[in-house]
């Protein structure tokens, strides 16, 4: 959490396409809501379809995580210590 020292504001970074502000919260909120739905649907529903929905909802955060990690590792072959 501390790669960029909090003492120094970031705007000094060079402005490029990837440096534009992006919406931070939609993804975490969506994954959080899916988790809550998954936790509760099995607890309250107990049967068939609610259980299956719970498994599906709780898998999505895991799938998204794995997809992001895979994407990063496939797209950029490791350049150890590459200059920025």
């Amino acid at each position: 959490m501390n790669a960029v020292s909090p003492e120094i504001p970031t705007p000094s970074l060079p402005v490029s396409a990837s440096r534009h502000p992006v919406a931070v919260w939609p993804w975490p909120i969506a994954l959080g809501l899916l988790t809550i739905f998954g936790l509760l649907s099995a607890l309250l529903g107990q049967h068939g379809v609610w259980l299956a929905l719970s498994w599906a909802a709780l898998s999505i955060p895991l799938i998204v995580t794995v997809a992001c990690v895979l994407r990063a590792w496939c797209r950029t072959p490791s350049v150890k210590g590459g200059q920025s």
Binding site: S18, P21, V22, V24, C68
Partner: peptide, 10 residues
């Protein structure tokens, strides 16, 4: 703030 969700800079 300036990083799309899920980007892992390698």
């Amino acid at each position: 703030k300036r990083l799309p969700f899920g980007s892992v800079r390698r």
